[in-house]
Design a protein around this nucleic acid. Structure first.
Lengths: 114, 114
DNA sequence: CAAATATGATACGGGTCCGTAACAATCAAA
DNA sequence: TTTGATTGTTACGGACCCGTATCATATTTG
């Protein structure tokens, strides 16, 4: 089953969503942060810094810093892997789930007018 | 006619799009820059700094700086309003149109797999 | 055990963006 | 004409992110 959007619908939807996100006062996540957050929530765990760096094709410090930022916002959390203590396991949080839930609802509602 | 996306489809689509944009090497536009670019291309002219600042609910320097950045990339251009030389009219460019066309095509293609 | 490898974090210099406050240019009104 | 509004830009100090190189810790290998 395909969503089957047209280019004009895509641009209108992105315009409305971007405008809604710019207008509200919450701290906007960067594209990289959003990629990380969505990957953590949509793909099966475990998620490590190395895996995310490879998946996004960015360096490891990019992931570490993004996790620092989103950790302060409590959108993700980190825990040492007890099986291999070199690894850090990135985990979901309630706030992160709510953030994405609200985001999805916003987009769904805007998509109704298109 | 409504696009009628579900929350799960929204998150999957955004994930795929964000990942594609992070991976390619082109300079990513910020959310604010994207809002401005889409507004210029989707809404009827004329567009002035003041109008955009009011529409996005941000300060005028934010608009000026975003136009500086996107002007360097030749995604938008500026021209003085000869009727009222205080105003600056923001205009579309060929590169800007191509940028959004490519972006829309990317999203459309990704939406087919969802 | 010692050496090599793997993982994530940190340091550093540079770039971009932000918000507020000032500013020059232009127009309108007195 | 002179005073006051309006428009867009710039200045400044601060925050954030980047890429590369380096580091500490942990594991694997010889």
């Amino acid at each position: 089953m395909s969503v089957a959007l047209t280019p004009a619908q895509v641009l209108r939807l992105w315009h409305d969503v971007a405008l809604a996100m710019v207008r509200d006062d919450e701290p906007d996540l960067s594209l990289r942060q959003m990629s990380i957050l969505l990957t953590i929530y949509l793909e099966a765990p475990p998620h490590t810094v190395r895996d995310l760096a490879r998946k996004l094709e960015v360096s490891k410090p990019v992931i570490t810093r993004a996790l620092d930022s989103m950790g302060k916002l409590e959108l993700v959390s980190r825990r040492r892997d007890e099986k291999d203590r070199r690894n850090v396991l990135i985990q979901r949080t309630v706030k992160g789930a709510l953030y994405l839930e609200r985001f999805a609802d916003t987009v769904v509602n805007l998509s109704r007018s298109i």
